[in-house]
Computed example of a mutant assay.
Amino acid sequence: MTTMNLSLPDEMMAFIEAQAALGGHASAAEYVQALIREAQKRTAKQELEAKLREGMESGPATEMTPRTGMGWNARSGNVAGSVTQSLHRR
Rank of each mutant, 00 (worst) to 15 (best):
T2N: 13
T3N: 14
T3L: 12
T3H: 10
L6K: 11
L6V: 04
L6G: 04
L8V: 07
L8E: 10
P9T: 03
P9F: 02
D10M: 06
E11L: 03
M12P: 02
M12V: 06
M12F: 05
M13Q: 11
A14S: 13
A14M: 10
F15S: 06
F15A: 06
F15E: 14
F15D: 12
F15Y: 12
E17F: 00
E17P: 04
A18G: 08
A18H: 11
A18W: 05
A18S: 13
Q19S: 10
Q19Y: 03
A20G: 09
L22Y: 08
L22Q: 15
G24F: 04
A26H: 06
S27C: 12
S27Y: 09
S27Q: 09
A28E: 13
A29C: 02
A29N: 15
E30G: 13
E30T: 01
Y31Q: 12
Y31W: 13
V32Y: 06
Q33W: 01
Q33F: 00
A34D: 15
A34Y: 06
L35K: 13
L35D: 06
L35F: 00
I36Q: 08
R37G: 04
E38V: 01
E38M: 04
Q40A: 06
Q40F: 03
R42F: 01
R42V: 01
T43P: 03
A44C: 00
A44N: 06
A44Y: 01
A44D: 11
K45I: 05
K45W: 01
Q46S: 03
E47P: 02
L48Q: 14
E49R: 13
A50H: 12
K51S: 08
K51A: 09
K51L: 13
L52W: 09
R53Y: 03
R53D: 11
E54W: 00
M56S: 09
E57N: 10
S58D: 13
S58G: 12
G59R: 04
P60L: 04
P60Q: 09
P60I: 00
T62Y: 03
T62S: 10
E63M: 09
E63L: 10
E63P: 12
M64D: 11
T65G: 08
T65V: 01
P66Q: 02
P66S: 00
R67A: 11
R67M: 06
R67F: 01
T68A: 07
T68L: 10
T68Q: 05
M70L: 12
M70Q: 15
W72V: 05
W72G: 01
N73G: 07
A74R: 15
A74W: 05
A74C: 08
A74E: 15
R75C: 07
S76H: 10
G77V: 07
N78I: 01
N78F: 00
N78M: 05
A80D: 11
A80G: 08
A80S: 13
G81T: 08
S82E: 14
S82G: 13
S82R: 14
S82A: 08
V83N: 05
V83G: 04
T84W: 03
T84H: 06
Q85H: 07
Q85P: 02
Q85V: 00
Q85K: 14
L87I: 11
H88Q: 14
R89A: 12
R89D: 15
R89Q: 15
R90T: 09
R90D: 14
R90C: 12
R90Y: 09
R90M: 13
